[in-house]
Amino acid sequence: MSVYHAGSRALQEQAGLREAADHVGRAVGDGIKPVAAAFLELQPLLVIGAADPATGRIWASPLSGEPGFVRATGPRQISVTGGPAPGDPLAGALARPDVPVATIALDPRTRRRMRLNGRSGPTRGGFSVTAERVFANCPKYIQRRAEYWWDPHRRPGPSRHGHELSGRQAAFVAGADTFFLATAGPSGVEASHRGGNPGFVQVMSPTELSWPDYPGNAMFLSLGNLALDPRAGLLFLDWADGTILQLTGRARTESAADGTRTVRFSVEHAVETSGAVPLRWAEPEFSPANPAPTE
């Protein structure tokens, strides 16, 4: 089975990067190597993307725990202890068997990230994922956060729902240096990372966001999905107090004559939860790959 589908291939061809994509694609496998298993067991944070079975909307959700809460339990399986909070948009999805999911483990301390896509099913203490695609990405645009502190007393507050961003939420998004993006396509779900200097995500209105698509690994997995299916989920995280903002809606990619690309996202539903992640991370050291902000 090819790593790429028609949506990704079209963008690779348009950018003249098909050969580079084929080279990167050879590193994608369906097994969890020992180095990947060791990396997972060190992580206190995992982001998962999936569709809400009740609405079909795509969401990205954070999962957290003491290191070891995510671990490889076989050459093609990971086990996750715990799961989303009861009010999380993906709580229902992860309680079902055989659900297409995507995960990304990102370690700000080392600027490493690993993606594992497959199918999940509930377990006694959480859920498991049987891997279909496993691969690492380069450290581009990951902000380094040298350490984190676990807050065992932090508890999620009540979730606030809406169909557009409040002024405070818009400021949160506009000041973000990182978010996570979930998309869906013929090959399943993808969960990816987007990073840049604060301001790289622009709030055009209470229901419209945009961000530049910076040059990456030439795979075009997320944008390839959006070319065929506009559903998308975004996750913004306050790395200090654990507040999360989850957005679901539709996205499209616009290409300019000079070859640059901009993604435009329309908000359909927003969920904000304070204290959702019991981690406090150090202040960021911005990635040297981040383009300078434009006026």
Rank of each mutant, 00 (worst) to 15 (best):
A6N: 01
R9L: 05
Q12N: 00
A15C: 06
L17R: 01
L17E: 02
E19P: 00
R26A: 07
A27H: 11
V28I: 14
D30H: 10
P34N: 01
V35I: 11
A36R: 13
A36W: 12
F39H: 04
F39M: 06
L40H: 11
L42D: 14
L42W: 00
V47G: 04
I48V: 15
I48A: 15
I48S: 09
P53A: 06
A54C: 00
G56P: 03
P62V: 11
G65L: 10
F69C: 03
A85F: 03
D88E: 11
L90P: 01
A95H: 04
P97Q: 04
P97W: 02
D98R: 07
V99C: 03
T110W: 03
T123S: 15
G125L: 13
I142R: 04
Q143K: 07
R145W: 09
R155N: 08
R160Q: 13
L165V: 07
Q169P: 01
A171M: 05
F172D: 02
F172E: 02
V173L: 04
V173N: 01
L181A: 01
G185M: 05
G185Q: 05
P186F: 10
P186N: 12
P186H: 13
S192N: 06
H193D: 04
H193Q: 02
G195L: 06
G199K: 03
V201D: 02
P206K: 05
A218S: 15
F220P: 01
L223P: 00
G224F: 03
N225L: 11
P230W: 08
G233C: 11
F236C: 10
L245K: 07
E254M: 02
E254N: 01
A257S: 10
D258A: 12
T260S: 15
E268R: 14
H269M: 07
S274W: 06
G275V: 13
P278T: 08
R280Q: 09
A282L: 08
E283M: 06
E285L: 12
P288F: 03
A289E: 09
A292P: 08
P293D: 06
E295T: 09
